Simulated assay, not measured.
Amino acid sequence: MKKHVHMIVDGRVQGVGFRHYTQLKAMECSINGWVRNRDDQKVEIDAEGEESNIQKFIEEIKKGPSPFASVSNVEVKVVNTPSHTHSFRVKYS
């Protein structure tokens, strides 16, 4: 069953390759959606995929891309509408 989630990632997650890491993990887990930096130094992720893949993706996001990154919190909210995306991309706005 498909699951759609919206995530806010807090910690040292900007300037450490986090968006690129997120995109790679999304492709590995067959996740569609997007990732972007926020003005408050957090990272925002919109992700949709099979429920088991979403869980695996969330666990990878909690780990972070490298020792230079530090994820202190991942807020996950389930979204009840489909995302209608067919790939995973980095948003720059």
Rank of each mutant, 00 (worst) to 15 (best):
I58Q: 08
C29R: 07
I58C: 04
F57Q: 01
S87R: 08
R12G: 00
Y21I: 02
Q23M: 11
V76S: 10
A26V: 00
F68Y: 14
I58P: 07
R89V: 14
V5C: 08
K42V: 08
V74I: 09
H4L: 06
I31H: 04
V43P: 00
S83F: 12
A47D: 04
G15T: 06
K3D: 04
E48F: 09
H20A: 13
K42Q: 13
K2P: 11
M1Q: 12
R89I: 03
F18A: 02
E59C: 01
V78C: 02
H20L: 14
K56D: 09
S83N: 11
P82V: 10
K42W: 03
R19P: 02
Q55R: 12
E51N: 09
Q41D: 15
K42C: 15
T81S: 12
K63S: 09
T85I: 00
R89G: 11
E48N: 03
Q23F: 07
I45N: 07
T81F: 15
Q41Y: 15
V43Q: 05
F68E: 10
D46T: 01
E48K: 12
F88P: 02
V43W: 09
Q55V: 11
Q14A: 09
V74L: 06
Y21S: 11
R89T: 09
I54C: 05
H84G: 08
N32R: 10
S52E: 13
V13Q: 15
Q14L: 01
Y21E: 03
R19K: 09
S66H: 13
E44A: 08
V9H: 05
H20Y: 15
T81D: 10
V5M: 11
S30A: 13
T85M: 15
H20I: 00
D39I: 03
K25T: 00
G11N: 08
E28D: 14
Q23I: 07
E51T: 12
V76L: 09
S93T: 11
V9Y: 10
H84S: 10
R38N: 15
K91N: 06
E59K: 13
G15W: 00
V71L: 03
V76W: 10
S87C: 06
E28S: 07
I61V: 15
V43D: 01
N32P: 01
E75D: 02
H4M: 02
E51F: 09
F57A: 02
D46W: 12
S93G: 14
E60I: 01
I61E: 08
I54M: 05
N80L: 13
E28G: 01
G15L: 01
